[in-house]
Design a protein around this nucleic acid. Sequence first.
RNA 1: GCCCCCAUCGUCUAGGGGACCAGGACGCAGCCCUUUCAAGGCUAAAACGGGGGUUCGAAUCCCCCUGGGGGCACCA
Length: 508
Amino acid sequence: MRSIMAESLSPVRVRFAPSPTGHLHIGGARTALYNYLIARKTGGQFILRIEDTDRKRYVPGAEEEIIQGLRWLGLEWDEGPDKGGPYEPYRQSQRKEIYQHYAQQLIEDGKAYYCFCSPQRLEAVRQEQMSRKESPRYDGACRKLDPAEAKARAMAGEPHVIRFKTPQDGTTTVTDLLRGDITVENRVLDDYILVKSDGLALYHLAAAVDDHLMKITHVIRGSEWLPTFPLHGLIHRAFGWQEPVWIHLSVFLKPSGKGKMSKRESAELIKDGYSIFLKDLQGLGYLPEAVVNWIALMGWSYDDHTEFFTMADLIEKFSLERLNPAPAAINFTKFDHFNGLHIRHLPIDELAKRVKPFLIEKGYSVSDETLLKVTPLIQERLHTLDEVTEIAGFFFVEEVQPNIEELVVKDLSVKQSCELAQRILAILKDLPDMRVSTAEPPMRQLVEDTGLKPAQVFGLVRVAVTGQKVSPPLFESMEIIGKETVIKRMEKAVALLKHMEEQAAAQA
RNA sequence: GCCCCCAUCGUCUAGGGGACCAGGACGCAGCCCUUUCAAGGCUAAAACGGGGGUUCGAAUCCCCCUGGGGGCACCA
């Protein structure tokens, strides 16, 4: 496959054609991304087309969610329902007449026919075929109808659909860029419905017509279309149209690799802080840069070692030839890794800006000045943005609530811990300020004087000042917090330890 | 049941007949660094599903099996 330099350098026209029937997920996002990348790389156009021909499955708000999701990822389209373009409209529900026109053309050419079979009859036929262990397929009853007569019945208003007259023998060969030729026996193909009884086209017709009219050069879509791929080739050929280059992407499997993510499993994921839905990702603390990097690498690779990619890198390096047709299991821990990588790649002020909403949401009062000082301390500690609250929340509160147990120094008694805390307090009180250069030397001296381990002394200070056992670097944190607050927190720790000591004495 | 697709470490992958006792990444384990946690560095364990061919030579090409996935709607 690698020898086929399909995209070469000529501009492609590609489209992402989602149907507004639910949430945009990472699988769809990846399809959109690959389309976008190849368009930008070749200087072509990326088109957004909404495939909303099924009114029953239409979900209000889904189109907006798709648009928001794509924009969040940074995948801006050149033509689409919201911005128009030379081939508008870009919403299939608004193109009903166009499809009808082309369906008529097929009927006139004898390549499609009216079908008046009721859903009930079709269901009965299906049942019977199944009971005979045959594949369910249209039995072709209306295929034999006299075309003039059928047309008259249709014109008279008799309910009908329009079916494609699939060749009954021979084979059909279509070509996928990644898989090569795919040949099927025509007899296993059905006389697929092209236009429903409500007059709206089904995907097969609508997509073919639109791809042709919109001058799409490459169709990059999910592999769920592979089974009907031969039909799509046949439809293009029935019209005498040149086919686009077809590329079917692999599917995403659940983390176990066993099957697709079910609706239920997708919903459950959020409990673990993950989601396959784009709408959730931002709130869970993920960067669009990381999402792009992560999904780009599920089914595509650049070489044997490069893994970090910005959008600009991807546009430069992406190629259809290096797409991988095998299904890929979703790996969320790798997603976390990429998120950390991109967090560390962000400029400080940008990271501060992105982390701020998470602090605000948890009720912290955030001063930009403090946040800007805190951000460098947490940058390499964050895997997701929302972790900022647990790692650095103590910077933005008046008081912390240390766990009394944690205040007791390892291998020391409560009494000894209390004495140590008092010595620390005395030293800090005497200092002119809390700069690292001011506070660290005397504290190190204390470690030496007491013969304790650094971890023991600093651990006590850490719990007292930050309220947590794990924190950003201690002295840098104290500098940001400032002397006044540090002293106040130390005093509280001493008081707590004293109280604990008294209680222990009373019990004895 | 029928049709189609896919097949390298647990996972994402590199690999286009000799450069492969198979490379990278995540995760996992250990070590280093270190005031905690990270980040970073180093090391380790970890794979060509099976069987036939073709060839001097196969992870790479062909066939079969097996396994996995997708699809069989007046959904997309």
